[in-house]
Amino acid sequence: MDIDINLRNDKAGLLAYFRSRANEIVSELALLYSAADYKKKASALNKAIIQSKENLLSIVEETAKNQHWTNCEILECVLMITYANDVVMLESRNAVWQYDYMAFSRRVGELWEPFCKLCFKYPTTRIASFIPPLFSEVKASLTTEIATYIDRLVIKTEEKSQLKRYYDKVWGLVTSGEIQLECDLHFTDGTTKYIVDFKSGFGSNEKGNTNRLLLVGSIYRNIETENYKCLIFVRSTENNHYLTTLQNSGVWETSCGSDTYSKIRRFTGFDIHRWIENHVDWMNDFAPQMRETVTHNDLQNYLIW
């Protein structure tokens, strides 16, 4: 396969390349796994197909650097490679272990987040990634701040100690351990630091995740030394009361569907929605067997990006 800037428009060539790679991988795995080990075989197949994508991307990035491609040109190539690889990965897994609706909806949802995040890896704007703070650091800073405030109060030493004990009890109620402040994406535009959580959709089992996001968002909101803003990017426009809870919390700014793509364009400078409309066509790009599975099990709605 020729590695040049024209890859960004060569969907057919990339699909053919990854299908050939998948056939090679399946042949190798047939020597390692029996038909009864289809779950292990499917897992190994997914990993190998993803690795073939990473190998191609590393060559593309090296070529792009040598030929001085723009970030937009690199991104268009990377998106096409990623999408073609996703198509073949879904096909190959289905051939080994046919998808049911739960596994299929979850897998397609999992593919959406890293796909969108590529826009932030190759932006045309001046955004940059940053390392999120550790909870231990935030807790220590807030504890010092409270302790300093209490020490300045004109009250007895005993009362100061009691207030500090009460403060420690509150931390104990909040958590019995460390809280993960790292989310899906962290970037800054030089003025504001954005914390982003991607979500394919809010279904029936989101209580735990919602409570965690409320806690994490509240912690970021109370870090006064930095200007943090928490965002939730949702693919689906059909969500439930858990998203409404986050929308009404005052700590997370949420967007769904086309609004999410508008936000991505605003921050990165790339119109990912237009790219998807022009290039993503799952049903026509799938091989016949995969297309039959999707149609027979009525899975088309899960392919709406």
Results as ranks from 00 to 15, higher is better:
Trp112Thr: 03
Ser58Leu: 14
Leu45Ser: 07
Pro123Phe: 03
Leu111His: 04
Phe135Leu: 00
Lys117Pro: 01
Val96Asn: 02
Tyr38Val: 13
Pro123Ile: 06
Leu111Gly: 07
Arg126Tyr: 10
Leu111Ser: 11
Trp97Pro: 00
Phe135Lys: 01
Val96Asp: 00
Ile50Val: 15
Lys65Asn: 12
Asn94Val: 09
Ser92Tyr: 02
Arg107Met: 14
Leu111Ile: 14
Ser52His: 04
Thr124Asp: 12
Asn66Arg: 09
Arg107Pro: 06
Val108Pro: 15
Ser34Gln: 00
Leu75Phe: 15
Met89Leu: 12
Ile131Thr: 03
Ala95Ile: 05
Ile49Arg: 05
Ser52Tyr: 04
Leu90Ser: 11
Lys47Asn: 01
Thr70Arg: 11
Glu61Ile: 05
Pro132Ala: 00
Met102Glu: 11
Leu45Gly: 06
Phe120Arg: 01
Gly109Ala: 08
Glu62Val: 10
His68Gln: 15
Glu76Lys: 06
Ala95Gln: 03
Ser34Glu: 01
Ile49Gln: 09
Ala128Cys: 11
Asn46Gly: 10
Glu61Asp: 06
Asp86Val: 15
Asn85Gly: 08
Lys121Phe: 01
Tyr122Phe: 14
Leu111Val: 15
Thr143Leu: 05
Asn85Ile: 09
Ala84Ser: 14
Met89Arg: 08
Thr70Ile: 10
Ala128Arg: 12
Glu62Thr: 12
Cys77Ala: 01
Lys65Val: 13
Gly109Lys: 04
Ala42Ser: 10
Ser52Phe: 04
Glu76Thr: 04
Gly109Asn: 09
Asn71Lys: 09
Pro114Asn: 03
Arg126Glu: 13
Phe120Cys: 03
